[in-house]
Simulated scan of single mutants.
Amino acid sequence: MDTKSLPSLFNDPGHYVKAFKVFCARSAKFRTYSDWVDGVFSEPVVGKLQATVDGREELRVLGVGSGSGEMDCAMLEKLKRRFPRINNRVVEPSCELLGQYKALAQSKAHELQGVECDFRQQKLEQYEKAGDATKFHFISAVHCMYHLDDYDSSLEYLYNCLIPGGAILVIHLSENSGLCRYRERFPCFQPSDHNYSTSADIRSSLDRRGIPYTQHPYPVRLDITKCFDQASEEGGLLVDFLTNVLNYRKTAPEDMQRTVMECLGSSLCSESKNDGIYLNMDWDAIVISKPQH
């Protein structure tokens, strides 16, 4: 399937942001994160750290590719209940997203009292090259491994940044998700600067190094019902986001559109319930532990 002549969604940042907002709304992205932090995050991560860190010690946290900070701030609020002093270093390459994170942290100043933020507008590779020797108790990498040049070596680097007894949280798309199957069916839509790895690739990297971890699956669904309504502007934006094509409905050939929509709506990728169609976007939370010596 030839998509080279189709305009990339990334060529129009404004349109991309509009499409991304629809994606977030239809997947209840930030509510999903909040629910997960309130539930699964507590014992595998917070409980483990509490057994490791001296209560008088400042907890050192590193956020990698933290975006606009919703997930990080939710985790920091949970950590804050056990650790009164937290140094939170954030490594995020996007100036716009970093600005949104700063604004969010400022709006939550009361909830995050005792948290000192250190924002760095860098790619992880740039941060590593700078040679900072700081070691961390907790490192979060939430849906960011896709954007790294080499997630395998980056995982090893982050593991080396942990103190003994520390933990890394990697959240990544499950290899069993419908979104993964869709991407395998249409690799032509994936931008060249993304590695479309899955949680199976992350686990394989850790297994090769003998690094211990636990995996916690989490079900996520994206409401794609409006994608099948040609009159829906919201549906059009969501299709743009899923194909990474600007104005996909206007620019892609009809036979291509038909093939893609048949795949997205099939049981291979989605489930139908209550007159809606929901794309399976299950992700896995992998908690990596560094043994104490």
Rank of each mutant, 00 (worst) to 15 (best):
Lys4Met: 10
Ser8Val: 06
Asn11Lys: 11
Asp12Phe: 05
Gly14Thr: 09
Lys18Asp: 03
Phe20Asn: 08
Phe23His: 08
Cys24Leu: 12
Arg31Tyr: 14
Ser34Phe: 13
Asp35Phe: 10
Trp36Phe: 14
Val40Ser: 09
Val46Gly: 04
Val46Cys: 07
Asp54Asn: 10
Glu57Ala: 10
Arg60Lys: 12
Leu62Val: 04
Gly65His: 07
Ser66Ala: 13
Lys80Met: 15
Lys80Asp: 13
Arg82Lys: 13
Pro93Ala: 00
Glu96Phe: 15
Gln100Val: 07
Tyr101Glu: 00
Ala103His: 10
Leu104Tyr: 14
Ser107Leu: 12
Ala109Gln: 14
Gly114His: 00
Val115Lys: 01
Cys117Ser: 11
Arg120Lys: 15
Gln121Asp: 11
Gln121Gly: 09
Gln122Leu: 15
Lys123Asp: 11
Leu124His: 06
Asp132Tyr: 09
Ala133Gln: 13
Phe138Trp: 00
Ile139Met: 00
Met145Gln: 05
His147Tyr: 15
Ala167Arg: 09
Ala167Leu: 11
Ile171Gln: 13
Ser174Phe: 10
Asn176Ile: 12
Ser177Glu: 00
Arg181Phe: 11
Arg185Ala: 13
Cys188Tyr: 12
Pro191Ile: 08
Tyr196Asn: 10
Ser197Val: 10
Ser199Met: 04
Ser205Gln: 08
Asp207Gln: 11
Thr214Val: 14
Gln215His: 12
Tyr218Phe: 13
Asp223Tyr: 06
Phe228Cys: 03
Gln230Phe: 15
Ser232Arg: 12
Gly235Ala: 05
Gly235Tyr: 04
Leu237Tyr: 06
Asp240Ile: 08
Val245Asp: 01
Asn247Cys: 06
Pro253Lys: 05
Pro253Thr: 05
Val260Pro: 01
Val260Phe: 01
Cys263Leu: 03
Gly265Ile: 02
Lys273Phe: 14
Trp283Thr: 07
Val287Asn: 04
Ile288Leu: 05
